[in-house]
């Protein structure tokens, strides 16, 4: 039942998205804009002859694909979930024979289908404009395509679990906003993690945000040793499994709290 249901959710969300196509196109321009500005700054630094851990092509690869990856792994439902829990809007869902998370997965996937269609040509154009030479190693692309859905899953589950804390915490959205900010920084949204000082690298590599965004890009820019790759994939899969367990646990006890307060 579930795949067909998810497909219906996806189709419905695609329709909604078409309705708001102008807004989505703008949002995609914006998604591309942030990384592009960072890229231009780093290229300026790089052209001054400063020695940096990344060369020009690696910067371009990183930041151009950053817009794609950050779009594909983005989540935004934690805040809605928190509101639904707090305002009691969750109740109708609990009566349906489908876990609430299925709807959110559908929504998330549906929007991304449309966004991908809008964003890809833009990224392509910029790539041509910058005369970018993207990596040609098929193995790197293969590993990238494996780590990308994993990154999306980590990001989604992290968001969902934090949003679910609304079962117990009144104003969880404050936490969600701070997470978005700090999480973005630690995920390499502004500065690639590889450019952080060496003494922080050990810590940076084991924190979860790396596996929501930075890791697929690191795989692609190709500076990871096979050992580092294996290490990274192990952490990424570990976070997936761990967060899924968290989700089950939080919802198991959360629904009891929800029913108890009768919200």
């Amino acid at each position: 039942m579930t795949p067909r249901l998810i497909w219906r959710c996806v189709a419905m969300n695609v329709m909604m998205t078409i309705e708001y196509r102008g807004e989505f196109a703008m949002r995609m321009v914006n998604t591309l804009l942030g990384p592009l500005i960072s890229l231009l700054v780093w290229l300026t630094v790089s052209e001054q002859g400063v020695r940096l851990p990344y060369d020009r092509d690696q910067f371009i690869t990183y930041y151009l694909l950053l817009s794609l990856v950050s779009m594909l792994t983005a989540t935004w439902l934690g805040a809605y979930l928190a509101a639904a829990i707090r305002q009691g809007d969750l109740s109708p869902w609990l009566l349906r024979p489908v876990p609430y998370i299925v709807n959110d997965i559908g929504n998330n996937a549906g929007e991304k289908v449309i966004k991908l269609v809008l964003l890809c040509p833009m990224v392509g154009l910029v790539a041509v404009f910058l005369r970018a030479s993207l990596p040609s190693d098929p193995r790197a692309w293969l590993l990238f395509t494996i780590s990308l859905p994993l990154a999306a899953a980590v990001a989604f589950l992290l968001d969902f679990v934090i949003g679910s804390l609304a079962f117990w915490i009144q104003d969880v959205w404050g936490l969600i906003r701070v997470k978005a900010l700090v999480g973005g920084f630690l995920a390499g949204q502004w500065v690639p993690l590889a450019l952080f000082p060496a003494r922080f690298q050990g810590l940076l590599q084991i924190q979860p945000f790396r596996y929501t965004l930075s890791f697929p890009l690191e795989v692609l820019t190709g500076h990871l040793t096979p050992a580092a790759l294996a290490y990274g994939f192990a952490w990424q899969v570990g976070y997936c499994v761990g967060l899924w367990a968290c989700y089950r646990l939080v919802w198991h006890y959360g629904l009891r709290a929800y029913a108890a307060t009768g919200a």
């Binding site: 807004e23 949002r27 942030g34």
Partner: peptide
């Protein structure tokens, strides 16, 4: 819905 707001924030970020 034009969605100009987000674009504007993005621009102002520069």
């Amino acid at each position: 819905k034009v969605g100009m707001d987000e674009l504007f924030y993005g621009m102002f970020d520069t």
